[in-house]
Write a protein that binds this DNA or RNA. Structure first.
Lengths: 133, 133
DNA sequence: TGTAGTGTATCGGTATAGCGATACACTTTG
DNA sequence: CAAAGTGTATCGCTATACCGATACACTACA
């Protein structure tokens, strides 16, 4: 696992790191049990504060992608790898949807907006379905 | 046009206002030339600072949804209404995609992530297509 | 058991988002 | 041309996001 980071992209560094780990898992570059680079190593290599790497790792742990062991290191979790195939199917669905949206001549912003709207609506409908009254 | 606002939702007030205007346009509740409520009126009704309404209106203008005339008021633009039908088609596309994604047992966060990934990828591919080299 | 390697916790600084208070400027209408 | 109704501009406050410096704590292993 080798990290790269763009200081001037405006995208938070810790998010860039998270993204790269997730992507590596989905492509198979990282597999269950694999150890991630040391927090310090990453920090030194990228000339970044250790805290920034800590934050990335902590959130990845919170999302269930990795397991962080105090004193030992950070490792890819089995469950994370299991989702990789599902993710590939999801990608196909999303890709075709975006193609159709692009052909409607929508801007990225408009696409995002429609998407967020429908997502919110789907969520509330699910909530209503669960409710007992 | 009647606004509502949720102070404790965490969603910025000016975004809530923008959302409601856009939605009203898409549903036909607002039509080309219709005047939006006065900045002051909205501010007073919702117990909100005029600046907040100003921001919402300004961004809506920047997005081409409304036209703001100094001293006169804010009005829905023709072009904005024209997009409404396209938006409805887009909604259908997105909705079915989200349904399929939900059946894959993805969380909202995961859905967003796949979506943003594919959107970014589609954009870069479009760029490559335009490039001459 | 101690030392090197690992993650963790605490504090602080800077930039920015969001919102409010208030004074200003344009336009319509009589 | 004046008054009422409209949008505009400027300033400042507060919360929070992001990142850095530095000291602490756990674990593995010789």
């Amino acid at each position: 696992m080798l990290f790269r980071v763009n200081q001037s992209s405006g995208i938070p560094l810790y998010l860039q790191l998270m993204e790269q780990v997730k992507h590596a898992v989905e492509t198979g570059a990282l597999r269950a049990g694999d150890q991630l680079p040391t927090i310090r190593k990453v920090a030194v290599d990228l000339v970044v504060n250790p805290n920034t790497v800590v934050r990335a790792y902590r959130e990845l742990e919170h999302e269930g992608v990795i397991e962080v062991k105090h004193g030992s290191g950070a490792f890819i979790r089995e469950t994370a790898v299991g989702r990789a195939s599902v993710m590939r199917k999801a990608q196909a669905v999303v890709q075709s949807a975006i193609e159709r949206l692009s052909s409607l001549d929508l801007s990225d912003e408009e696409i995002r907006r429609v998407f967020e709207n429908e997502l919110a609506q789907a969520r509330t409908e699910k909530q209503l379905g669960k409710a007992k009254t």
